[in-house]
């Protein structure tokens, strides 16, 4: 399954891109989180939530959508 992933804020600085396509057979959002942490070790120091098809979802959610967004909190004002 090809997954389109969008990154925001400081996460996009770590990945070096706003978005990328990842080919994977993973099953759940938790699996996806693990893939991201393996690929980008600096994510371990960041808080983020994962959205699937424009909706923030729990880690146990089955990965169905191809459109993923990874959202960190911003503090600035």
């Amino acid at each position: 399954m090809q997954i389109d992933i969008k990154y925001f804020g400081m996460l996009a600085e770590i990945t070096g891109c706003d978005s990328e396509k990842v080919e994977s057979e993973i099953q759940t959002v938790a699996d996806l989180q693990k893939v991201l942490l393996d690929k980008y070790p600096d994510f371990k120091n960041k808080d983020f939530r994962i959205a699937q098809n424009q909706e923030l979802v729990a880690l146990e959610t089955k990965l169905t959508g191809q459109e993923i967004a990874v959202l960190p909190p911003f503090a600035g004002g």
């Binding site: 925001f8 400081m10 808080d47 923030l56 909190p73 911003f74 503090a75 600035g76």
Partner: peptide
């Protein structure tokens, strides 16, 4: 909230809607 070139806007706690902790339960 903002970071460099990006911003986030939402409304919390309106008509039994979600809150900040429903998005990010705890501070970093």
């Amino acid at each position: 909230a903002i970071y460099k070139f990006e911003g986030q806007v939402t409304v919390f706690n309106h008509n039994n809607g979600p809150s900040y902790r429903c998005v990010f339960p705890n501070p970093p």
